[in-house]
């Protein structure tokens, strides 16, 4: 932790280069979002949007903002439900080892292999019977299926690293299983909770197939469907598509950075393990 030597800034330099490399396609997306139609396939390509246009952004700001709100709500709902379902399961599989637990882990593995479109078809049939097509809770519930198996397996892997002595100590202190889970296991698992939340959020944020099948006709459409305003039957408005992606990723990126900050603080605070 205390490695702030003069070498640190040199590392920042390397970090910037690595990040730059990783984000280059993102830069390209931004570049295209400002590009006029006639320059899109210029050869050689323009590195900067010379003669740029704001048409894409004009279209997006006029039409897309409500979709962003929906995406946020769905993302947060997915995170909450995923953690609520998966954390206790991870704890049980890692530490309590009930008979049949491995079989359940195995089922979770299989569950992730079902093609998304088949899952969506199943949900469509169920939701239609229930009349919850085109509702936010419906979409949230469907989106959690993207994250729950992953979350359980990740929680299992991480929670298995919690020293047994820590849990033993809690039991000695007279805490019940539930209390141990709530006040010992969850706090030291903060790290994995954030990891899981992050992925749950990102997966629901970028989900298209559930959104289209289950929420395509309603008032609650997420941003991935918003993009389809620029994909007509024969024609695609690429600067607007890319502009939507840019506008959509800015608030989410800010959220990511804030979350990271919170995690790092949380981890240093909770790092006292033995």
């Amino acid at each position: 932790m205390t490695t702030s030597t003069p070498r640190a800034w040199w590392k920042t330099g390397v970090g910037l280069v690595l990040t730059g490399l990783m984000l280059f396609p993102v830069y390209w997306m931004i570049n295209v979002s400002f590009t006029r139609d006639q320059d899109m396939r210029a050869s050689p390509p323009h590195l900067f949007p010379t003669n740029g246009t704001l048409d894409g952004y004009r279209a997006v700001l006029d039409q897309q903002l409500p979709y962003l709100g929906t995406s946020f709500l769905v993302g947060l709902g997915t995170v909450a439900l995923t953690v609520a379902l998966a954390a206790p399961a991870g704890y049980a599989l890692a530490k309590l080892r009930p008979p049949g637990g491995p079989a359940l882990s195995f089922l979770l593995l299989i569950a992730q292999m079902i093609p998304g479109i088949i899952m969506a078809m199943g949900f469509y049939a169920i939701y239609l019977t229930l009349g919850v097509l085109n509702t936010l809770p419906g979409l949230i519930l469907a989106d959690t299926t993207l994250a729950v198996p992953f979350a359980v397996l990740i929680f299992t892997a991480f929670m298995s690293g919690i020293p047994d002595e820590l849990l033993q100590a809690a039991v000695v202190d007279g805490a019940g299983r539930l209390r141990t889970f709530w006040s010992v296991v969850l706090p030291v698992s903060r790290n994995s909770i954030v990891t899981v939340s992050l992925f749950a959020f990102l997966w629901s944020w970028s989900d298209f197939i559930f959104a289209s099948t289950l929420a395509g006709g309603g008032d609650h459409q997420p941003i991935t469907l918003g993009i389809y305003h620029y994909i007509g039957n024969n024609n695609q408005q690429w600067n607007a598509i890319m502009a939507t992606a840019v506008v959509a990723s800015i608030p989410a990126a800010v959220l990511l950075i804030l979350a990271q900050r919170y995690v790092s603080m949380g981890v240093t605070a909770g790092a006292v393990k033995d």
Binding site: G77, I126, L128, L130, P137, L141
Partner: peptide, 24 residues
């Protein structure tokens, strides 16, 4: 139908009181 029952139970867990949009 079984699945449907489970959905209702879980929808209740998520606190979904707001089935706003009308059935199709």
């Amino acid at each position: 139908r079984l699945a449907a029952v489970a959905v209702i139970a879980l929808a209740a867990v998520t606190g979904s009181a707001c089935s706003s949009s009308a059935d199709s």
